[in-house]
Structures are given as C-alpha cells and as structure tokens.
Computed example of a mutant assay.
Amino acid sequence: MKKSVLFDFIVDKENNKINVERSFDAPVDLVWAAWTEADILDRWWAPKPYQAVTKSLNFAEGGQWHYYMLSPEGEKHWCVFDYEVIRPLKFYGGSDAFCDENAVVNDSKPRVKWENGFTANDNQTVVNIQLQFETLEDLHAIIEMGFKEGFTAGLENLDQYIAAQFYLRQQNKPNNQPRVTTYVNFPGNTEEAFLFYKSVFKTEFSGKGIQRFGDIPAEAGHPAVAENIKKMVLHVELPLLGGHVLMGTDAPKEMGFTLTKGNNMHICLEPATREEAKRLFDELSNGGTITMPLQDMFFGAYFGEFSDKFGINWMINFQNTKQ
C-alpha cells in the first residue's frame, strides 16, 4: 500500500519565510526531472486554467528559467528564475522574480529566494521548499496574490501527471520486444478518430481497449481528475496492417498541451536496448531539430523527440521492463 501524501504549508512571519514540505509517489531522480526540465514544468507549474510556457531554460549554476503564466484570456505574466546553487538530485536554490518578455526584473513586485531539497523516503520523494522574502510586506503581497492556492493546485497537477504516466507504463508494453508504432495526439476527439480507424481496418483495440483519464486509480492524497477530462482517452492501441500499431491519446489544453497540425503525429521507435535507443536518436536527429533531448524521464523511460532533416516527427522510447 502506498503512503498518503505529505503536505505542510507554514507561514513564518517572524522570519519572512514560507516553508512547504510535500511528498510524491516517485523516486528522487524522476521527481528531480519534473522540477528541472522545461517540458515537464510546463505541464504542471501553473494552476489551472493557467498554463506555464517556457521561453528558455538553462538548468545550471548561473543559468536561468524564463517563462510566463498564460491566462485563459491570453494575458502573459512573465517570470524569471536565476539558478544559483545546484547539487544534482539533492538541492537547488535561486531567486524568482516577476519580469518582462526580455527577462528584465520588475522591481516593484516581490522577489523570492527559493531553496528546494529532495529526499528519498521509501518509495516516495519528499521535497522541502523554503521561500525567503526581503520584507514582511513582500510575504503578505505574495499570500494576497493567492500563492498558497495556486502553488497547491500546481503540485496537484504534478500528482496527476505522475499517476497517469506510471499507470500507462504498468498497463502497456510488458516486455522489451522491439517494435515500431505511430503515436498520434488529439485535442479531445481521440475516441471518435479511433472508432473510425477501427471501422476502416476492421481490427480490435489491443490490451484493455480504450483507457480513460477517469480510469486512473484513485489513491489517498491524490487529487481527483477533473470531471471534464475523465472521459477523455488516456491511451488506446489499434493494430492496422502487417503488425503495425497505431497508438493515441487526448492532449487536453487543461493539462498544458498545445496541439497544432504537424506536431500531433510521431513515428515511435521502441528498441530493445538503451544503446540502440541512443544510436537511433543520434543518427536520425542528425541535421534535424531536437524538441526533447534523449534522457531518463520521470515516468520511467529513456525518451526523446525530434524532427528529422526532412521534417518527419520521431519519438525514441526505451522502457526497461526487466528491472
């Protein structure tokens, strides 16, 4: 049985601090990735219905994360995080401030010092967060902006994303047999599309059929999936011809996805070894555009994405099911 989620939020007015302690049902390396890689941060950092959008991220001492919060009305609220100290998989610290699109800090708004510590605790990771403000007035201003509610909602976004990814990995591809699939994303009509393809190819869905976001098991401490997302498709696989499999998912904007024609379809290669995954990635991406470097992802895969020099989108995904 998994532990319940730990969450403490303490306001220390005497020292102008906020202390947050939060646990996640994932190992340290995967939680660390979720806090330090732009593609994952963009999926959970902003409270719904806002979206976080990274302009640039250089996770290194002296580096910077420049991003904005996008409102449903299209307003952009720019922020910049300057990384000062990094101890891989254990700690990073720096300062966060409001700014403009050129990363010029807005001195009229509060600036915050962050210290984030990561500690393994059985099958969980505990993140200890300390926010230091220059003045009590700055602390009050952040609280009045709704920081506690917004940050809590963001952490719940991350819980949902972790739960969805691990659930998928447990349910699909039980071995390391190599295969090639096509992976497609839809803004909310995956079921309609796959029922159409099913009627054309006269085949049946593989595995457990259509899996929905609402099928993710509810666990103590995890936030419930939003009602308007529950019926959307989390994962579906359909054999086409000659053993080729079409895989798909809904990518709702409520979970931070932005789809455009051209970026919603990938050829997905699942090689048998990590070494072969790297070889395929390096050679196929040569001369192309890498959209996600090949790396160990927090959902347990060695994964990367790119467009090759001919404009074709690829995913490389190695999942070591023997561990």
Rank of each mutant, 00 (worst) to 15 (best):
F186V: 00
N189C: 07
Y197M: 00
L195Q: 15
A220W: 08
L234K: 05
F186T: 01
A193E: 05
D215C: 03
H222Y: 13
N185F: 14
E219C: 08
E254A: 03
K198D: 01
Y183N: 14
M232Y: 06
K253E: 14
Q170W: 14
E227V: 00
I210T: 02
I210D: 01
N172K: 11
V180A: 13
N172S: 11
V236P: 10
T190N: 07
K231A: 14
F196Q: 11
F213E: 02
D250E: 02
Q171P: 06
N172H: 13
T249Y: 13
M232G: 10
H235N: 11
P178Q: 06
L241F: 13
E204L: 02
K208A: 15
L238G: 10
F186E: 01
K173A: 13
E192Y: 10
T258E: 12
G207I: 05
G209K: 03
A251C: 12
K208M: 14
Q211F: 09
E204I: 03
F166H: 14
T182W: 14
K202L: 11
F257H: 15
L246M: 07
G207D: 12
E219N: 10
F194A: 10
E254P: 04
R169Q: 13
R169P: 06
G209Y: 02
F205V: 03
T190D: 06
T182V: 15
G209F: 01
M232T: 06
V245N: 03
Y167I: 03
I216G: 01
L238T: 05
K198Q: 06
T181I: 14
